[in-house]
């Protein structure tokens, strides 16, 4: 049957298409808001999908790649993302992030998270200052101690910086499942706003102690390596999603992996990293729609384990 459109209908459809291209979040999940979680120490809401820069934003002085990464960041903001996490360990990533934020004039859109990565425990303020200059911001929303390196000294300085208003939140990070017992000890002792750890559908050690502890102590959790550094896609992308994935709110593997993570009640945010706009769009799809319930989460983990 041929559909006959009036001129008014055609123009309205054209305008809607144009709007959807400019503001993807509007069309990502009609009638639904981005999924957010509260930071326990303040109650401030954060979108559950953030963005990492590990191995993706370290492009040196390559103007072509800087422009491509800027488009990735632009897409992230357009879909409603806010938290961007980086580290001085990631080569030129902080310089590139600063350039991208400048290009997009997006300093007020970003929830800026970075790390102190220095063996010298007295270098906290100096490194924070260098990173602020690179990002072109007055202060970081979140400053973390990278991989527990010289954490005692850095933590004392970060506490003072928070008290002085030089940072809004403080945290500590680990990855690859390392030093969980040390991290648990620090979580039990100190006043932390955030912890960052590796958590994904295959790396689930954090469920045993760290995630329950974070809930108990009121600490926000950032999950890094949500795709296990890309391994999850390499291993499972050739497999088809289970038929019940739609019921769990997942229409592709990126949403499957990310929604598994952020549906854990202790997790505040996951930080996938990517170099491509289309992958960023897939990742940000996990910011909308349903989240799997506890039974569906178990089914997701069992399904992946069985592949």
């Amino acid at each position: 049957m041929a559909i006959r459109w009036s001129r008014r209908q055609f123009l309205a459809a054209l305008a809607a298409t144009g709007l959807s291209l400019r503001v993807p979040a509007l069309m990502a999940a009609p009638g639904q808001k981005a999924i957010t979680r509260a930071i326990p120490s303040s109650g401030e809401s954060l979108p559950v999908i953030g963005m990492g820069t590990w191995r993706t934003f370290n492009v040196g002085g390559d103007e072509q790649l800087v422009a491509e990464r800027t488009r990735v960041l632009k897409t992230f903001f357009e879909w409603g993302g806010t938290l961007v996490d980086s580290s001085p360990m990631y080569g030129s990533a902080d310089d590139v992030m600063g350039e991208a934020l400048d290009s997009l004039d997006a300093h007020d859109k970003v929830f800026s998270a970075n790390k102190i990565w220095a063996r010298d425990g007295s270098a906290t303020g100096e490194q924070d200052s260098t990173l602020r200059r690179k990002w072109g911001i007055e202060r970081f929303d979140l400053q973390q101690i990278h991989n527990l390196l010289a954490w005692e000294s850095h933590l004392e300085t970060l506490k003072q910086m928070k008290a002085d208003g030089d940072i809004r939140y403080l945290g500590i990070t680990t990855s690859h499942g390392r030093r969980h017992s040390d991290l648990a000890r620090i979580m039990e002792q100190g006043p932390l706003d955030f912890v960052q750890l590796t958590y994904n559908v295959l790396d689930r050690e954090a469920e045993q102690r760290l995630l329950p502890l974070a809930r108990e102590r009121g600490i926000a959790v950032i999950a890094n390596r949500p795709f296990q550094g890309g391994n999850l896609f390499r291993r499972f992308q050739s497999e088809s999603l289970p038929g019940w994935a739609e019921e769990a709110g997942c229409s592709n593997w990126a949403e499957f992996f990310l929604k598994f993570i952020v549906s854990h009640p202790a997790v505040t945010c996951a930080i996938p990293a990517t170099t491509r706009v289309e992958h960023m769009e897939e990742n940000m799809g996990a910011l909308y729609g349903r989240l799997p319930d506890e039974q569906q989460r178990r089914r997701m983990a069992d399904y992946v384990a069985g592949l």
Binding site: W54, R55, T56, V59, G60, Q64, L65, M89, Y90
Partner: peptide, 16 residues
């Protein structure tokens, strides 16, 4: 740690 954990860039950036 694996060897790739020490690299902070991907093949695309290197070949460029």
């Amino acid at each position: 740690y694996s060897l790739s954990d020490f690299l902070m860039f991907g093949p695309e950036v290197f070949l460029r």
